[in-house]
């Protein structure tokens, strides 16, 4: 007896409600963009400059007392958050973020010593297992490289798909990619999860994963387009998606299985990073069917592979598509 996540024969119509699904995706993207500009991202010091100090204590964290201890130091914007980790109930950790100080490339030794002394006066069991300072010069460069990396990855992929498929596929794939990246940024805005350098790596992995999924579907579409030369595009797409559905679900489930293990047990340091990837896998799986393929259906595809003329290429296409 085999475990079957989807029936071995499925004939679902994935394009019955393209208006609804594409509309929903478009609205979600729009909301994400609005959120990005209104709430903004909770940029980590990698991108904003400043200092973060992680504290560990034997007694419960008292955020208010920490804040009172640090206020007299006049460090500008100081954020103190307690770190919760359900798998480690005896953990009393917090993260303190101090804005980049005027004119300094990194926090000076004196400032750091003052902060530590002030905190130790509140709780003498405190230790500081992680201290990170990033100067404004480096953080500016990091933002630039990060944006460049995402754009370069998308461009490279666009080019590769175009090379291997038709341009319509390329547009569909990239629309799905942008959809995934935008939605991820939206989720990070809503939940105000710290957005740092590692999240950029997660974003790029999402790009890779989402594409992986899209390419597998497209590969089957290409094959079926050649096999069923007269079948309407919509049917070909539905057939291809149904044929690959079992694989799509299997791979997503195994990947999610691994990621959820990491999310629950991997410790709080990489939780944000893993969260981004889990979200990306879910959204990426959805988008390869409901965005990439739906757009491909709307754009239509050259069908007659023997002729170069694109006018002639659409002769068998479904006029309703």
């Amino acid at each position: 007896m085999r475990l079957k996540l989807v029936p071995s024969e499925s004939h679902w119509d994935f394009f019955k409600h393209t208006k609804v699904t594409l509309g929903a995706s478009a609205i979600a993207c729009l909301v994400s963009i609005v959120l990005f500009f209104t709430m903004g991202l909770n940029f980590g010091i990698d991108f904003k400059g400043g200092t973060t100090i992680r504290t560990d204590s034997e007694v419960a964290v008292d955020v208010g007392a920490y804040r009172d201890a640090l206020t007299p130091l006049n460090l500008g914007d100081v954020t103190i958050t307690e770190i919760f980790d359900p798998t480690q109930p005896e953990l009393h950790a917090s993260q303190i973020r101090i804005q980049a100080q005027e004119g300094a490339e990194a926090v000076s030794i004196d400032v750091l010593a003052q902060v530590k002394d002030a905190l130790l006066a509140v709780d003498n069991t405190l230790t500081f297992p992680e201290v990170t300072s990033v100067g404004p010069k480096v953080s500016g460069e990091l933002v630039q490289t990060a944006v460049l990396a995402v754009v370069a990855a998308i461009a490279a992929v666009l080019f590769y798909i175009w090379l291997r498929f038709e341009w319509q596929f390329s547009v569909g794939a990239v629309a799905a990619l942008v959809h995934d990246v935008v939605l991820t940024i939206g989720v990070f805005s809503i939940l105000q999860i710290k957005f740092d350098l590692a999240i950029i790596a997660a974003l790029l992995t999402i790009v890779g994963y989402s594409l992986n999924d899209t390419v597998v579907v497209f590969d089957r579409v290409r094959e079926n387009l050649r096999r069923y030369k007269t079948k309407p595009l919509r049917e070909v797409l539905n057939l291809s998606i149904n044929e690959t559905l079992s694989r799509t679900v299997m791979t997503s489930v195994t990947t999610l299985l691994a990621l959820i293990a990491l999310f629950v047990l991997g410790g709080d340091v990489i939780r944000g990073f893993v969260f981004a990837m889990i979200w990306g896998v879910v959204v990426g799986t959805y988008s390869s069917v409901f965005v990439a393929s739906a757009i491909l259906l709307r754009l239509d595809v050259k069908r007659d592979w023997s002729k170069k003329d694109s006018e002639a290429g659409t002769q068998f296409a479904n006029p309703d598509a």
Binding site: E105, A106, T127, F128, P129, E130, V131, T132, S133, V134, G135, K137, V138
Partner: peptide, 9 residues
Amino acid sequence: TFLEERTIG
């Protein structure tokens, strides 16, 4: 000039 510094216990 130190532009970036990180300590991990």
